[in-house]
Design a protein around this nucleic acid. Sequence first.
DNA 1: GCCGTTTTCGGCCCGACTGTTTTCAGTCG
Length: 577
Amino acid sequence: MNKYEVARVLSSIGLLLELKGESFFKAKAYYDAARTVEMLDEDIETVVYENRLGQLRGFGQALTSKVTELVTTGKMAYYERLQKTVPPGLIEMTKIPGLGAKRIRTIYESLGISTIDELKKACLDNRIASLKNFGRSMQQNILNGIENLDKIKNRFLYVRAEELAADILKDLKDGARVTAEVVGSLRRKTEIVSDIDIIAMLPGDTGSGEILDLFTGHRFVSEVVSTDDFKSSVVLANGMRCDLRMVSDSRYPYALYYFTGSRGHNKAMARLAEQKGLRIDESGLYRGDCRINISDEAEIFDLLGLQYIPPELRENTGEIEAALRSELPELVTGSDIRGILHVHTNYSDGTDSIEKLADYCVKEGYEYIGICDHSKSAHYAGGLSVEDIKRQHEEIDLLNEKYCSCSFRILKGIEVDILPDGSLDYDDDVLEWFDFVIASVHSSFRMDGDKMTRRVLTALENPHVNILGHPTGRLLLAREPYSIDIGAVLKKAAEKNVIIEINANPHRLDLDWRFCRPAKQSGCMFAINPDAHRSEEIDEIRFGLNVARKGWLTARDIVNTLGVREIMGLFREKRGI
DNA sequence: GCCGTTTTCGGCCCGACTGTTTTCAGTCG
């Protein structure tokens, strides 16, 4: 059992205790313990077997014996008992904004409501508004929250779909030695997907039976919706739909093409084919009744007189016109990225030391890492006091001496809060200490649009700000972007040479790819940042690359494709140093 | 539930905000 699994159980106990109305501090003890475990630099099993759990801060007798039981037996009796005393519907309710443990408990205890369906009905019957400290407005907010939950029911984060699809695809390829690929929105790398579509090439000599058996019998499958000789549709354990379609080798490239494109892209391609006296559909490209034989998908674009259009661009946003003129951009790739910016350490809410994060970047072949912990107002995230900053900078200086021999560099950065009035969370004389500054909004999200826009524009005026962090604050499937005039923000950023972050955290993917081209047209530069809170999350930069590619960006648009000297020069120049 | 002591029990993170109230309760980051 790894440390993250243990941490999950401990956090879950914290939530259950809150829902039961136990002392918040008792719950907090479990949350704190979860975090301590997550931050362990070594294997939790080693710590347990060497009886060193009790030496960890926040681990007394109770936690030591409970976590020992969990790690050695895979179970914790206390957790299992606790789960039985709290209806699962109450845990679901914590997803409704504005409903915390106390309100959920009030609803449960005074009205006996234990599921979201019952809660919805109670709202419609006006029974919630009459509870003490609730009221009509709160009742309406709960209803809105439930509606939003319904809306996202069959929508999933790209990252989750990608993991599942990769596993299914691997099993099909390994088990049936079949050529197969993921298509649809997942291949176009959209941030939210509703299902997984897979195309497989029918083996010439055998039937489709073996592939279908592997597919419908996959361990992720919870229900087989339909199956015939060439198609199967299943529902996976997380509720996601997954479709497999099998086609002959001659139709395979066409199926790959057809089931990848967005509807708009396919329609536009069909119109183009028509203009050229051809016809295209999922089965092939036809001249009259005669299908043109091809061996791979790229030939389709050739035959239509187009530059190859990468799947990410097939959204019908001008890619066909650009491909006709051979003006598609050369999209940025992972190998263009030379350095990593925006990484949190255990000085604030990250779990790893600066050294561990830096070592990870060295191993991955990056040339620099920009450390950016939270600023002092971010109490919840252990934001850095001025003394903490001094301590961290001393440590970075020492580490940089160590990395000097391998030409790796740690940059001193900060993710400074943009306060509600647009000022920054440190004085200018403190901001001067950093190599670069990311400014982000982390509080008062519900300001009206004018106020929020003014707030961010004011922050962009500060000469110390190099990068605007997660510019719209959205959390995919969880929180809408804050109300802001993004056009005005991008214009001001371009004017003040402030780089726009493409936050690569799969829950954020902010800036949205749809804004990348307008931002570039305004004159903005971009940084693809992982916003990592532990070393492995540095790899999440690939999700940011998806955004940049979907946004038509090239390596020249991205500042962290620069070497360390060039990027330091850029940061200094902007700040007039 | 843990910690640090006053070795037996009080304190544990906090400020902004929302919505409820009419001075406060609960949520959120």
